[in-house]
Design a protein around this nucleic acid. Structure first.
Length: 285
DNA sequence: ACACTGCCCTGCGAGC
DNA sequence: TGCTCGCAGGGCAGTG
């Protein structure tokens, strides 16, 4: 599922082919035209045809393509969404729901097996509101251990759902939260406000480490992620714990069989020895 | 203000 | 082998 490294990979590869180019036409899947949304009273197709894309930005897991009319195309891939660059005449990509024809003979195609992803024509104040309610970018200098520590102090809930909360820090999903918690040896059920300032600092460094590594590998392809050329990312083989399939496999650090649990409704893999939790330690022996 | 649940959606793997 | 069933989960609305 696309998280920050995957979305950023898409952005980097798409940008040179779309920025400065005009959208010549839009084709929507008749069975799913709502994949393209717009503000109330604005026809999204009419709002983007003949508009020029002036940039390619990312905020958290959102892709933002500003247009020359002041509005922006905001795309969220959610679980299984894909953006692909193709020749204009190429056949539809798998699960294609939208095709934006560009003036350079290329198409930007959006496909999504599970129809969770959306393309939204967005007004400037909507973009500001979106960005304002998201937490800091984890790779920005503004995301410091002290800042995370202060935020965690206000959160008595489990650390894993807290880190998945995009309002606290933007761009983390299930994969990189599991990896960062493993790196810092923090159990996902640990109450966030019981973590110390040093824990928060280690978490910030671990989050940056796993995100930078994934970026260098052009993202993690666990099942469906592809870059805009249809290529898988290579980061999956560098993951330490993520994935239900790892249950029972030896921890890469200590060899203890990894455990799978559900935290906040999300599949979670931990090393029960490296990531100790009070409740666990007391439970059986 | 926060935590928690359910909803959306469908290919695929597990189980029989 | 072929079928059914439920899992996968990001973001958001609704509820407590």
């Amino acid at each position: 599922m696309p998280e920050l490294p995957e979305v950023e990979t898409v952005r980097r590869l798409i940008a040179p082919h779309v920025v400065g180019h005009t959208i010549a036409g839009v084709e929507l899947d008749p069975a799913f035209p709502d994949v393209l949304e717009g503000p109330d009273g604005i026809d999204p197709v009419a709002g983007i045809v003949d508009r020029t894309i002036t940039g390619a930005q990312r905020r958290g897991k959102y892709l933002i393509f500003p247009l020359d009319n002041g509005m922006s195309l905001v795309i969220h891939l959610r679980m299984t969404g894909r953006l692909l660059l193709t020749e204009h005449d190429a056949p539809p990509v798998r699960f294609q729901h939208a095709a934006l024809a560009l003036d350079n003979g290329m198409d930007l195609r959006f496909g999504d097996q599970r129809k969770f992803g959306r393309i939204r024509l967005t007004l400037p104040d909507e973009i500001e509101a979106l960005s304002a309610r998201l937490g800091p970018e984890p790779l920005d200098a503004s995301f410091t251990g002290d800042r995370l520590y202060a935020a965690l102090q206000r959160r008595p809930g489990k650390i894993k759902p807290v880190l998945l909360d995009q309002h606290l820090v933007a761009g983390l999903g299930n994969i990189y939260v599991d990896e960062a918690l493993f790196r810092t040896r923090i159990h996902p059920l640990t109450p966030a406000n019981t973590l110390g300032r040093d824990d928060a600092g280690r978490l910030v460094r671990a989050i940056r480490h796993v995100l930078r590594g994934a970026l260098a590998n052009q993202g993690t392809t666990f099942s469906t992620f592809e870059n805009p050329y249809g290529e898988a990312g290579s980061n999956a083989s560098f993951l330490n714990v993520y994935g239900k399939g790892r249950h029972g496999f030896p921890c890469p650090r200590c060899g203890t069989p990894l455990e799978h649990l559900v935290v906040g409704g999300r599949g979670t893999t931990i090393c029960p020895r490296c990531q100790r939790h009070e409740a666990h330690a007391r439970r059986d022996d």
